[in-house]
Design a protein around this nucleic acid. Structure first.
Length: 151
DNA sequence: TTCGTGATACCC
DNA sequence: GGTATCACGAAC
């Protein structure tokens, strides 16, 4: 399975009130303080996993929340995982994409550069990247750290 | 628009 | 121990 990241949000550490790491390190968010390029998975609202990728050197908390992808390969498998028939909304949300790609806490701390299970490739496309306020956060609204592809 | 859902963190 | 919060999804 593969897809193109269509939407992501940046979360920084101690200076970002919306970040899990704002109030220091806890067992749950400790991975945000680790080496860049690793997975930080958290279970939220009692039902879904959210995929983050750490972005900063060890000791400095920071991560990017992958919010949405456009399926490229393996769309059929993603539909199976979601129990859907049409691909329209198969992975257009943080919880949806993890379910579609069968991502869960097992990838917590995974090296997402060298991993064989889940990894990122660099690429470009002709779509415009826009930015706006992050979604679902009550603090830190002024930072327009949500980035998404114009569709 | 609402409600279920459960882990977490923080407060006793 | 309890409880408020939550970077959401699905149903309605």
């Amino acid at each position: 399975m593969s897809g193109m990241v269509a939407e992501a949000e940046a979360y920084r550490g101690s200076k970002d009130p919306a970040s899990h790491a704002f109030r220091g390190m806890t067992p749950r968010n400790s991975l945000m303080f680790g080496e860049a390029g690793h997975g930080y998975l958290y279970f939220s609202y009692g039902s879904h996993w959210c995929l983050n990728v750490t972005t900063e050197p060890p000791g400095i908390p920071g991560a990017v929340l992958i919010r949405s992808i456009l399926p490229l390969e393996g769309t059929e498998a993603m539909l199976m995982n979601r129990g859907l028939a049409v691909a329209k909304h198969v992975a257009d949300g943080p919880g949806k994409l993890t379910k579609a790609l069968m991502i869960d806490g097992g990838l917590n701390g995974e090296d997402l550069i060298h991993s064989r299970k889940l990894y990122f490739l660099e690429g470009t496309n002709g779509l415009l990247v826009k930015s706006g306020p992050r979604i679902g956060v009550s603090k830190g609204r002024s930072a327009r750290w949500r980035f998404y592809l114009q569709t």
